[in-house]
Amino acid sequence: MSVVQTDFRAAILDPARPAPAGLVDPEGRPAGKRFDVYRNNVVVSLTNALAEAFPVIRKLLGENNFSILAHQFVRAHPPDSPRIALYGGALPAFLEGFEPVRHLGYLPDVARLEHALRESYHAADVPAVDPAALAALPPDRLLVARLTLAPTLRWVASDWPIAAIWHFNATGGPKPAMQAETALVTRPDFDPVVTALSPAGGAFVSNLAAGERIGAAIDAATARAADFDLAATLAALVSGGAITAIEED
C-alpha cells in the first residue's frame, strides 16, 4: 500500500495516532519507534525555535511549562513557512486562549513584543534622516509634514507595563510599576531597542504610521493625555533611526 503525506503529517503532529501502515523496519515490521524519530525531530526542533524567539516568555513560564505550551502550540499551529526565524506570530493569540496561563494577563503582549523584536531584527535597512533636518524645520511646516517611518519600527500597545516587564526580564531593568504602556521597538543599527512610551505616545506613533500629518498625530496624542510628551516621543524615534523621510506637500 502507498503511504500518503496527509497521513504521515497527521501522525507526526498527533502522538495518539499510530505510524502509517506501510512504514517498516529492516525486518518488514511496523516502523514503531523509528517513526517516533521524525515525530521527535519535528516537535523538538520547533520547540527550540520558539524558545529562541520567545526567551522572556520562556523565562516567565519556566522550562517545563514552556515546553508544555510549545508542544501544544506546535501541534495546533505548525509553521506555514520555512522561514523559521519568524515562526510564532500566532503565539500571542494562542496564549490568550491557553487556560493554564489565563491569570498572567500580560503574557500575550509580551509575546507580541518578542515577535515584534524578531521582525525588526530581520527588517530592511533604510538610512534614517539627519536629525538636524527635523530640528531645522520651522513649526508651521513641521505640523503639516508627514514622516516616513523605518521598516524596522514596531510598537505594541498594552494595558500592562509591557516595556518595563520586558526590560525587567531581559535586561535587568527595575521592577515594573502597574501602568499602561506602549513598547516602541526601534533598530538603530542591528540590535532592536525597546523604549517605553505612554499610551499617548503610542497614539502619536500609530497616527504617524497611518500617514497622518505631525499636527494631527499630536492632536490624537493630546486627546489621550493632555500632558503628552512630544519631545520625548520624537527623541525615541530619532535616536532609534526610525524616521527615514520627511514629506512636505
Partner: peptide
C-alpha cells in the same frame, strides 16, 4: 504538506 512546514 497542506501549508504546514514540519522543519524536518
Amino acid at each position: 504538506h497542506d501549508t504546514a512546514f514540519l522543519n524536518d
